[in-house]
Design a protein around this nucleic acid. Structure first.
Length: 413
RNA sequence: CGGGAUGUAGUGUAACGGCUAACAUUCCCGCUUUGGGAGCGGGCGACUCCGGGUUCGAAUCCCGGCAUCCCGACCA
């Protein structure tokens, strides 16, 4: 991509109505655009990041057998009445509208009801189980207070996976596999070392559910963590009983603020019983399916990466998340030789399959470097009169700042 | 939803109740410059959030909306 054609521009200053680091940097660098409180659009750079995160999530979900689907946002009130979650008294985050043909419609804030009804059309026998399905789709929640940039919004992307099992043991096996997959996802996102599988309230079916909490001052949750033991407990369930159950003492845990980047929990047969998702066992008896629900918000994950990894100069993306692999910067592009060389290198890298953002703008070096730091692409390659003279290219690692002179052959290797 | 704060060019700020609403930046033109957001000159860009009211006169004071941010509550 030629930066001269990229319609977004960087800004020196953040808009005054954004306080959170994630929104300030993402807006300044041109990744996102704010529409209203709690509503953001994703621009070319931002969409690339989201798609990269989605790719990581897809790979890990597919690896544990998840089958991707795409469920609608519009929701049928009748379905939600079967679980008593349609009324505004029961669920206060609904966005609703009216059909012109008559009747109500809802905008999905979760898809548990919908997927359960879908599966009731296909699950017949114990031979059909177990399996899992997921989708990446917008969720709408009428939050009374949006905040923290893209961390808590009213319309947001969510990956939600649902598991369907016959027995508690079968369910638990998948639950743990999914928990492991989640840790692999957060590791690939570059926030694994600060993310803890955290005990949280489990609802009616289990003692605990699990959240994936990333330690950060930008977080709105409080967890009690022991980093050495790799264990954390959400404040909301921390009491003597919980400590005893987990074999922990209060004084070995440290209170920390954290961001909930994912959560997984057992649903038991709550939805399958209400909606009629059953299977025939070996004796031909109809048994309700045991379900689990597993969520990650890609946009919140993106915000978390920015909160954790950025520095005073701007964003620092991990390689797998970055919108481009290389930021090619030409300095002194009015020099024919420099321009020609940079153009040629851009083509060679692109032909090789490397995603390059090529700063071909007619701008001074300082501005280009500052923008490059802000945008946060992992590797910078500089082409200038100086590099042409030495015959080597200058590469700069965004994270460490380490400068290395390499030959073109090495770069293309 | 309770409390607090704020709405002025694209962005960030200024302006005693009184001149054509100012400055910086962005953007456009010209010259100069060319490895860390350069310099000089010129130019475009604002119904001062909306609607009322007070006043000879309102960006400024008053009332009502709306919007945004922060704290709290809420948030499988």
């Amino acid at each position: 991509m030629r930066q001269s054609r990229l319609f977004t521009k960087t800004r020196k200053e953040a808009p005054k109505d954004e306080v959170s680091k994630n929104a300030q940097l993402l807006i300044r660098a041109g990744y996102i655009h704010k529409e209203m409180a709690g509503v953001y659009s994703f621009l070319p750079l931002g969409l690339r990041v989201i798609e990269n995160i989605n790719t990581i999530i897809r790979e890990e979900m597919n690896a544990i057998g998840g089958q991707e689907v795409f469920m609608s946002s519009l929701q049928d009130p009748e379905l939600w009445k079967t679980t008593d979650r349609w009324s505004d008294e029961t669920v206060d985050v609904w966005f609703k509208s009216k059909l012109k043909a008559g009747g109500d419609i809802g905008f999905a804030w979760t898809h548990e009801e919908m997927i359960t009804r879908i599966m009731s059309s296909y699950v017949r026998s114990h031979k059909d189980l177990p399996f899992s399905a997921y989708h990446i789709q917008n969720k709408f929640r009428n939050e009374v207070r949006a905040k923290s940039g893209i961390m808590r919004t009213r319309e947001f992307l969510m990956k939600d996976l649902y598991s369907f099992s016959r027995t508690e043991a079968e369910h638990n096996k998948f639950y743990n596999e999914c928990a492991d997959a989640y840790m692999r996802i957060f590791t690939r996102l570059g926030i694994g070392d600060k993310t803890f599988k955290t005990f949280a309230s489990g609802g009616a079916f289990t003692d605990f559910s699990h959240e994936f909490q990333t330690l950060s001052e930008a977080g709105e949750d409080i967890v009690y963590v022991n980093e050495e033991k790799n264990i954390a407990v959400n404040e909301e369930v921390l009491d003597d009983t919980a400590l005893a159950t987990l074999g922990l003492t209060r004084d070995e845990l440290t209170e920390r603020k954290s961001i909930e980047v994912g959560n997984i929990f057992s649903l038991g047969t709550k939805f399958s019983e209400a909606i009629g998702l059953t299977y025939a066992n070996e004796e031909g008896k109809e048994i309700p399916v045991i379900m689990g629900s597993y969520g990650i918000g890609p946009a919140r994950a993106m915000g978390t990466v920015v909160e954790l990894l950025s520095d005073e100069k701007g964003i620092v993306w991990p390689a797998e998340v970055a919108p481009f692999a290389v930021h090619l910067i030409e300095i002194g592009g009015d020099d024919e030789a420099v321009r020609a060389y940079a153009e040629a290198l851009y083509k060679k890298l692109s032909d090789k399959g490397t995603l390059v953002l090529y700063d071909d703008r007619d701008a001074r070096a300082g501005e280009k470097f500052a923008d490059s730091d802000l945008v946060g692409i992992p590797k910078r390659v500089v082409v200038s009169k100086k590099t042409l003279e030495t015959g080597e290219l200058e590469t700069v690692d965004r994270k460490t700042g380490a400068v290395e002179m390499v030959s073109e052959a090495e770069l293309l290797a």
